[in-house]
Amino acid sequence: MNAKTRRSAKGLGIAALAAAAMATAIPLATATPAAAVPVGCNLVPVHDDWEGLCYRRPTDGDSGGVSGAVKINNVRNPNFGSIEFRAKGENFYLNTKGQSAAFTAWYIRDGRAHYFFDRLRVGANSFKFVDKDLSEGRTVWIRACVTQGCATLKTLRS
């Protein structure tokens, strides 16, 4: 386990999960701790003061769907960028605090990436809702990027 992986896994207890979800207004905070599960993120070079946090919610009211969220945040101040995918309704929630962020969401079909949005910029201290249609059972990938790095989660399902 390298230093970046240790930092991304650090503090992922139930209390940290609830605090991170509430701080970003991600509705995962309303889930029971057993329903929202911290999972590993794929991190693209992340500056030392930043970490990626990823969560999955396999039981979300959409039969076969898996919801989840990615948050890339500064460990020294409250700045962050977060994206949540809700399988029930195929909705995306983008949220920033303290700085702008870029968000990408896509699925793979026939070996090709099909983007819902690619590097969609959301200004500092902003929220954006994106509603998309997607056939059931597709694997959904989400990514949140700030200048200091990116975090990706690829184990969600419509």
Rank of each mutant, 00 (worst) to 15 (best):
A25L: 11
P33C: 11
L156R: 10
L43K: 08
D60W: 01
I72Y: 05
G52M: 10
V75Q: 15
A87D: 04
A31C: 09
V37T: 12
P58W: 06
G40P: 09
D49K: 15
N42D: 13
K97S: 11
F116A: 02
W141S: 03
A3E: 13
T155Y: 02
D133Y: 11
Y55F: 12
G52L: 07
R86I: 07
K71G: 05
R112H: 04
V122N: 07
G52D: 07
V46K: 08
Y55C: 01
S126W: 00
H47W: 03
P78M: 08
A144N: 02
A124M: 04
L12D: 11
A151W: 03
A9P: 00
P38K: 11
V130R: 14
D62V: 05
E90I: 09
N2F: 00
N74A: 12
G13M: 06
L53W: 06
G137T: 07
R56G: 01
G52W: 02
N79W: 04
A151I: 06
K128F: 00
V130H: 04
F117Q: 07
Q148V: 10
A21G: 10
K128Y: 02
L156V: 05
T152I: 13
P45C: 03
A15P: 00
D48T: 13
V130E: 14
S67Q: 10
A20D: 15
T147D: 14
D60L: 04
A144I: 06
A34E: 13
E51C: 05
G111N: 08
L28P: 00
K71Q: 14
G65F: 02
P58H: 09
G68M: 08
R143G: 01
F117S: 06
A3N: 12
H47T: 12
S67F: 05
I108G: 00
G123H: 04
I83D: 02
I108T: 13
T152M: 06
G81A: 15
C150M: 08
L28G: 13
K10I: 03
G89Q: 10
I26C: 14
G98Y: 03
N74I: 06
G61Q: 10
D49W: 07
G65N: 10
T32D: 13
K97L: 11
V140I: 15
I108K: 11
M22K: 15
G81E: 07
G13D: 15
A19Y: 07
K154P: 03
A16V: 03
A102I: 01
F85Y: 12
A36I: 12
A102K: 14
A16E: 14
G89A: 09
F80Q: 07
L134N: 12
F92I: 02
Y55R: 05
G61S: 11
G123W: 00
A29T: 08
A3I: 09
Q148M: 13
A18D: 14
F103S: 04
V37A: 08
T59G: 09
L53K: 15
T96Q: 07
V44S: 14
A31Y: 09
A18S: 13
G81C: 09
A101W: 03
G61N: 11
G11D: 14
F127P: 00
L43M: 12
P58L: 11
N73Y: 03
H114M: 05
C150T: 09
